[in-house]
Design a protein around this nucleic acid. Structure first.
Lengths: 196, 196
DNA sequence: TTGACAACCACACATTTGTGCGGTAATATT
DNA sequence: AATATTACCGCACAAATGTGTGGTTGTCAA
């Protein structure tokens, strides 16, 4: 069943409130947010939301609103596959979401699925998800996502004088040397692998 | 500051309650869980937890307990060491917690910090956390946690006739062959790595 | 001994909060 | 015209819940 405009607003407020405060709002807190002077009005909306199975109201309990369709807070977008070995195109496509712990879910972080085995020596395998914090600079030896031309790669970052070297971790591949025209997308801060 | 045994129990209960119900418990709910007939007793503990910055108490609000160090319910224990003969995890051998997505947080799962590089060829490095689902059987070729003698190891599982072979993924190590007296603790279902 | 702390009890009190019941008004559907 | 739906108000009441004060007991360190 569809929600009305007002019901959607109220549901959204409950979700936000619960996320920020760790507990859902009371009837009167909802009322004051929407300038509803009567608790009955709020209850009408809660009843409607409960009838449509968006929330559940636990009788007699304070803040007894249970969100039934919970929006996950610590999920980050998975960008399209990146190419760790052979060249390829980086897509801006968001390819779903992946759940991570808060330790990895910092601002502007996203996940990328690894393709190829050019970093196998560093324990990064095809199909792994690398978690990336977006930043444009990085330190010697860190594993980064970099754009060279229009291809994105996972490589270890090294600077030698003016040159920037993107170093694979697999003897079958050669380092990419550039004069500095490399755009760093971000730093790899974590890795998640799922075994079947 | 350190928590006392009782305070830790209460904090844990609040976290669990909040995870299950979407809101923290009331003072009296905590009291009834721990058979404390006086609300004052509970408040003593809450004051202690607040003084030690584990929670925050919002005055005048029902369920006004705010968890400051939030551990979402999708956190699983990190096993410190696995002891021979002990079924499952002994609580005294838990070495903290790690946050994982729901996909990895199934029942009876725990994490284990990898020591050594015997599985480096499979992209499992020292310091990685492997996520383990407890089970006593497994399939050909799966990566498992097994007890040989009184030590737990991460190895690839193979069966050859009557023999069970625990196979490392590093040519510097030799496979462990046994006649079947291996106890399988669980199967590796995921891997999490943190880069500094 | 004194003092600090953890852990508990008892109870009264005020406030917060959910509940029940009865209204009004606008709009659309039958 | 009758009925249903959405969206409101107002108020009294009871239950849930946080607050305040004053106790007891035991342990541990100065």
């Amino acid at each position: 069943m569809e929600l009305t405009e007002k019901q959607r607003e109220i549901l959204r407020y409950i979700e936000e409130f619960a996320g920020e405060n760790g507990a859902p709002p009371t009837i009167r807190e909802i009322g004051s947010r929407f300038s509803l002077s009567s608790t009955g009005s709020v209850r009408d909306h809660l009843k409607a939301l409960a009838a449509k199975r968006y929330i559940e109201c636990i009788p007699g309990k304070s803040r007894g609103i249970k969100l039934l369709r919970k929006t996950r807070l610590s999920s980050i977008p998975v960008a399209g596959r990146i190419v760790a070995g052979a060249p390829g195109l980086a897509t801006e496509n968001i390819d779903g979401e992946i759940e991570v712990g808060e330790r990895l879910a910092g601002r502007g972080s996203f996940a990328l699925r690894v393709k190829g085995d050019s970093m196998a020596g560093a324990g990064i395998q095809e199909g792994d998800y690398v978690i990336v914090h977006q930043q444009s600079t990085c330190e010697q030896g860190e594993i980064v996502i970099a754009m060279t031309g229009d291809e994105a790669t996972v490589k270890r970052f090294r600077r030698k004088g003016k040159k920037i070297i993107l170093e694979p971790a697999n003897p079958a591949y050669s380092p990419i040397e550039t004069d500095g025209d490399v755009r760093i997308i971000g730093k790899v801060v974590g890795l998640i692998r799922y075994y079947k």
